[in-house]
Design a protein around this nucleic acid. Sequence first.
RNA 1: GUGGGUGUAGCUCAGAUUGGUUAGAGCGCCAGGUUGUGGCCCUGGAGGCCGUGGGUUCAAGUCCCAUUACCCACC
Length: 371
Amino acid sequence: MEGFFSIEARDPGSLARAGLIRTAHGTIPTPIFMPVGTRGTVKAVAPDDLESLGAKIVLANAYHLFLRPGPELISKLGGLHRFMGWKGPILTDSGGYQVFSLSALRKLSQEGVTFRSTYDGARVFLSPEIAVGAQVTFGVDILMCLDECAPYPAGREETEKSMGLTLGWARRSREAWGGRGGALFGIAQGGFYPDLRRRSAADIAALDFPGQAVGGLALGEPKEMTFEAIETARSELDPAKPMYLMGMGTPSDIIEGIKRGADMFDCVIPTRNARNGQLFTRRGKLNVLNARHKDDPGPPDEKCSCYCCRNFSRAYLRHLHQNREPLFLRLASLHNLHYYLDLVTGARESLLKGTFPCYCKEFYELQEPVD
RNA sequence: GUGGGUGUAGCUCAGAUUGGUUAGAGCGCCAGGUUGUGGCCCUGGAGGCCGUGGGUUCAAGUCCCAUUACCCACC
């Protein structure tokens, strides 16, 4: 994968860097945030919204799309890009997270994982080969290996066993991929045992994937543990390749992740929380459903230039939500995605200008103290 | 007018023909949470002259009488 990733600028005081990831559907400037579109749609927003927000890549989920509508249908309809009407790059998660999040509905074996479908209860088997095959069929730009994300807390033995399974699956995924289609990323696990984290990262790095992800983060552990795990993994991964922190995170998680060398992020927070009324502003979180906004004529964030903030009041947004109007979901999602994309774009620009430390400082200074 | 039914939280209703701590639920409301997503879900909180007035009783949302409002049926 010559020229897949290049680094344009580095912050001398940290591991932060700005780079470019080149794919068949476009070049992705990093650091980047990927809106989550699990089922081939970023909930409540259309592809043209994503485009005007400046989204450079979206994430979809192979497990969900595998179950419904299935790879054959997507292939028949021209691949996932065409199917979902998004022309830019797509990354698919393999379904590894579902091994964790749907743990009550699955049985694990060395060979793979058997799920009870969350749609109709049918038994579905997923292996590293099947997961890669599906992603290749989807025609996505970045594929993820099937992995197992150990829960938190987890015992040392359980964690070690889990990362072993993940490593075996990573080898098989790589074999099944064979360089076809997009770029396959390996996933380092290892829980919160520094030596296991280190080993998992080293083992994954040795497999020489085009990109590297760190999984098993933000499962409820204290922040210091999350950051330590990232640092530990980073020390063993290949710094010439993009590092993707899976499922991260809050705005400050992203800033802290960038400092620690991360290039890619995805998280459901901006879209999910938007649907529940929690909006992100420069000054911190804002629950626009709170009664105190009942007659507030101001936008969610005075300084925000998004479509929502330019045109609508907090009072109107609250009104929409109280009446369960679909427009609420769209406006709130647009705003939060704008915030997240703006956050990483700002970080990137500051890295290119050499002002990243100031950018971070300003980010924290603006946050209102939490009471 | 006569007979029957119903009045308990903002709404819909539980609270046995066994009277017994501080009267409950769902929804709504108020406030938190949400990290590789089902708009789901989770956690707290506020809110009651039990229609009104009398009576029986140590004790009444519960039993008795009256009264009032609404609903249904029949003149």
